[in-house]
Amino acid sequence: MREDGFIGRIEWAVAGRALPGQRVSGDRGVVLDAGGDSVLFAVLDGLGHGAPAADAADRAAQVLADNRAEPLDVLMVLCHRAMADTRGAAVSLALFEAGDTVRWLGVGNVESRVLTLGPGGLTVRATVLLTAGIVGYRLPQNLQPQTIPVRPGDLLLMATDGIVPESADGIDLSRSTAEITAEILARHAKDTDDALVLAARHRGGTATPP
């Protein structure tokens, strides 16, 4: 599964695949126009794999689509309620806001980080603080979104645990987000799990390319 596009000033792409031998994946990437020049991104990793994992992730994806304007902590609670009779999922949410900031919140083991290009090369500007738990089964009591500044060219990467973590040095920011996600999936997807990676880049300005 591969998708890519632009929403306003944000270029994005998602690449994923099911565990070899399975017809469906329990990993989902969600991209939503949240209004007011904001874009909501989510990566959902249904517990396990196959149809039960996909059902959990699909329920959370629908909740996000129906309630995209809600605060991140509220969205996490709504996902938790919707998945109460499923296996549950790891969920990471990231909201690109109009004021050149990203707000994010994660429960479970979906890794999220922002990469930036500085004088010394590519570095990790920030990594989401993940909270232990399973959305739909055991939600942490204190859900506290973090806010970080971003600038044009910064890259948000979100990946399920079916992707082997890669150092920042292995990523070429001159390539499109579609190329970046495709390469990460091809090089770093595990053979023992579903795998999905989402990339979003702050392009500056407000116009969507034709």
Rank of each mutant, 00 (worst) to 15 (best):
R103N: 08
D33K: 15
G204H: 12
A168R: 03
S38G: 13
H188P: 02
S112I: 04
T177P: 14
H80G: 05
L40I: 15
G136P: 08
V107W: 01
S167H: 11
I180D: 01
G204S: 09
P52I: 06
A132V: 03
L157Q: 14
L19R: 07
G21D: 02
A18F: 00
D161A: 07
G26A: 03
P145G: 10
M83D: 05
V128H: 12
R68P: 02
L157Y: 11
V124P: 06
L75E: 09
L196F: 01
L78A: 14
S167M: 10
P209S: 15
L19N: 00
A82I: 13
I171K: 02
P152W: 00
L75Y: 08
L143M: 05
L155E: 07
A65K: 14
A186T: 04
R28D: 01
L198D: 00
G29S: 02
A54D: 07
G153W: 04
A94H: 15
A69Y: 02
P52H: 10
P145F: 06
R81H: 13
V39Y: 10
L115A: 11
P52E: 04
G88P: 02
H202V: 13
A84L: 12
R28I: 03
R103H: 08
G205S: 14
E179D: 13
S25K: 03
G136Y: 07
L47D: 00
M76V: 12
P210L: 09
C79A: 14
P20Q: 13
E166R: 05
L143Y: 06
P165G: 03
G35I: 05
P149G: 09
G5A: 14
H49A: 07
T208A: 13
T86G: 09
L117Y: 13
G16F: 01
G88Q: 07
I148Q: 15
V197C: 01
G118Q: 12
P119Q: 09
R187I: 00
D100F: 07
A56M: 07
D45H: 04
K190Q: 11
D4K: 10
H49Q: 01
A98T: 13
R68Q: 10
R68D: 05
A186I: 01
L117H: 08
D37L: 10
W104G: 10
P71A: 11
A132D: 05
G29M: 08
G26W: 01
